[in-house]
Design a protein around this nucleic acid. Structure first.
Lengths: 336, 336
DNA sequence: CTGTTAGCGCCTTCAT
DNA sequence: ATGAAGGCGCTAACAG
């Protein structure tokens, strides 16, 4: 470690005052272009780097945003972060990552700690383990926050989602058109609006096609993976549906396994459609049709909204954007 | 926004000095337990949050680390970040994410900017587009840095990798044992040690089994996806190998497509093994066997090494850890 | 054990 | 167009 170089160093070297250097570095209009140039040149030569802590302390701007998500190692979220990071980068912002692992207590700890002024804004996709939003009401008043994908509608903040209802509705209709009569539903995220919307879309589509919604055709997600497996197996044994819609990838997988175990052939005996954002679609088992959310785009847009708020420095009537999902049909699930 | 509450507020409220409050909050041994308790209680009641910028400025500790990776939306890296974040969290550290998108210029910009003291340490997996390490020689002297997975061996810093050579060697041997005589290699990351090691493992395994290494059986990765497709297609048409080892997922995919187009059946006509960290293995086409790196564990260990360096506050003889990959054999690729 | 003092590096009036 | 001075909030000697 060598001696650190500060604006003081530059000032001394150029025989000008510290404040002049500071202003020059900030491209202030009160400084002559020649002086600025001299400062910039020397700064570059000496590889000067502004000390962010000192700068933040004075200016109350951190050039940093936080992203709070349930899980990084999830295709949807990692793609969303990709989009967020891309936009943040363009603006010269830094991106902090926090994973809740679907734990509300952890989420509360994060949001509380972010009240310290460590970041200028927050992007968050809420944890699914509780329907608890108390910690957000205070947060959104203190610091610009954008909710994405997993949102609470009754929090007064900007938010961006996908068309959960419509996509589930369309997927269900599609299965009906394929001739399916007994469409099961693997239900997750039931604490969240997204989960509820997907379920409603499924139910309404059934109704629209004169098919009855039956609770026995539904499996509720459980943290216990073994239990999920067993429940799905029971569903298959007791009801033998001819199609399944899964609200998350994590339920489509055990379903796939169950079929393997029971010798149920996909898609001839059973068609599966799952909400999924695997970026390796072509490698997927061709019998799985997916409802794919525009994760990258959502990340970009969410960040864009946040920066819009940050730019205005005051809170706008909060935006609510909805992006469209895509039903990606693999060959072998296509209607015949 | 209400008026911010600082240690000064607490001090005034309790009629003690600012420094006493500061020490109490830092759990200093020089403060009586009663005073500490009073301070803590009030702090909690008033929801006091230490201003990180001020603290950093004074103490030169940011409680923040940076992770620089090529791409977040890549299973290997997102799992690694997962592990890193987990360990950082335990230590109360914050994690900044930077994506290079395989662009060395971007990488240089990041490392330069991190010299400003924004972070206490850096975890990095280097970009593959150039074999350029100049920007690291200065960096590693200034700030604790751990290289993971994609490393430069000649940089004097801690690093952690997987057994690229061995895993490629074993995979190749496995194919030979399955009866394959003409094993092609899809070569990527050729600027990096990892890429070279994998290639060497492949070559040496061929030799060990009295099979000749032939350049015509190799396709070099190109940024142009269409070109990769065409090159692989040419390989298939001209050489008709009976097996392929792909050094990255991104080359296994086009290979898979080519086979589809040419009517080459996998795995009967052609066996494919790819380095891959898809977390959805069971959904994968069952004809793809993978060499899977312990990404999560690597993230954890990399972070652990960094914290070890941070704890000691001086640079140790640099560690070099190697973790083992796993050859995950799908049913249908198994030897018969 | 507690308080006083002096900055960390930078930005920002306010003068000149 | 430039400079002097004060302070952001906190920590770290150093005294008591």
């Amino acid at each position: 470690m060598k001696e650190t170089i500060t604006i003081k160093t530059l000032a001394k070297e150029l025989n000008i005052s510290i404040s002049t250097v500071s202003k020059a570095l900030n491209d202030s209009y009160e400084i002559s272009i020649e002086t600025k140039q001299k400062v910039w040149d020397l700064a570059k030569m000496l590889k000067y780097n502004r000390n962010p802590s000192a700068s933040n302390l004075r200016s109350h701007k951190t050039k940093t945003i936080a992203v709070i998500i349930p899980e990084i190692a999830n295709n949807f979220f990692s793609q969303a972060i990709n989009g967020i990071e891309e936009v943040a980068r363009q603006r010269g912002y830094h991106v902090l990552i926090y994973q809740t692992h679907e734990n509300t207590d952890q989420e509360i700890a994060f949001t509380d700690s972010l009240l310290s002024g460590r970041v200028d804004g927050i992007l968050i996709s809420v944890s699914s383990d509780h329907d608890n939003r108390d910690h957000f009401t205070a947060l959104v008043k203190e610091i610009p926050t954008v909710f994405f994908d997993r949102v609470y509608e009754d929090i007064d903040a900007a938010r961006i989602t996908t068309d959960d209802y419509e996509s589930a509705y369309n997927a269900t209709s599609y299965l009906v058109e394929c001739g399916c009569k007994k469409i099961a539903y693997l239900f997750a995220l039931n604490n969240l609006n997204a989960g509820k919307q997907r379920m409603s879309g499924y139910q309404d589509a059934l109704k629209a096609h004169q098919l009855a919604y039956r609770e026995e055709l539904t499996v509720n997600y459980d943290k216990d993976a073994d239990l999920n497996y067993q429940n799905i197996k029971d569903l298959m044994l007791n009801e033998r549906p001819d199609a399944v819609i899964s609200s998350i990838e994590d339920l489509a997988l055990p379903c796939y396994y169950v079929c393997k175990e029971l010798g149920i052939h996909i898609p001839d005996d059973l068609k599966i459609i799952s909400f999924s954002n695997l970026n390796t679609a072509p490698l997927l088992n061709p019998s799985l049709t997916t409802i794919t959310q525009p994760a990258l785009e959502m990340g970009r847009q969410a960040a864009a909204i946040l920066f819009k708020i940050l730019d205005k420095k005051h809170f706008e009537p909060n935006e609510w954007l909805t992006l469209k999902s895509t039903l990606i049909k693999r060959d072998s699930t296509a209607c015949h």
